[in-house]
């Protein structure tokens, strides 16, 4: 069981670092939803099913939905990716 937990924490931290440093903005939003996914599994492992379900519904579903709408509206989907890869 401990290796499963270690792997999930690894996935979570890799995705979290990726959110900050990946140049493409759409990939950053994808990485945010992956962080929520790992958190859902962790909440289920520590026997908190209510919180796990809330995180699954809000973090992974509605959160990425809202952020994707924001991306669409802010124009990060323009061609060339020059706007999306603005310096950070």
């Amino acid at each position: 069981m401990i290796w499963v937990v270690a792997l999930i924490v690894c996935i979570m931290l890799v995705a979290a670092v990726m959110v900050l440093f990946v140049p493409n903005m759409i990939a950053a939003v994808v990485a945010t939803s992956v962080v929520s996914l790992a958190l859902t599994a962790i909440f289920a492992i520590v026997k908190a099913p209510d919180v796990a379900m809330t995180e699954a519904a809000i973090g992974a579903g509605l959160g990425s939905l809202i952020l994707a709408l924001g991306l669409k509206r802010l124009g990060f989907n323009q061609t060339g990716g020059s706007q999306g890869e603005e310096n950070d």
Binding site: I26, V29, V30, S33, L37, T40, A44, P49, A52, M53, A56, A57, A60, G61, L62, G63, S64, L65, A68, L69, L71, K72, F76, N77, Q78, T79
Partner: peptide
């Protein structure tokens, strides 16, 4: 824990569809 899997699988589909919409509007623009 089955309910969590149900909710998660349904809503992850929705999130992926929204992200795919972003890509699609990129192609159309």
């Amino acid at each position: 824990y089955l309910d969590i899997a149900l909710v998660y699988s349904v809503l992850s589909f929705v999130g992926i569809v929204a992200l795919a919409k972003v890509i699609e509007s990129k192609v159309s623009s």
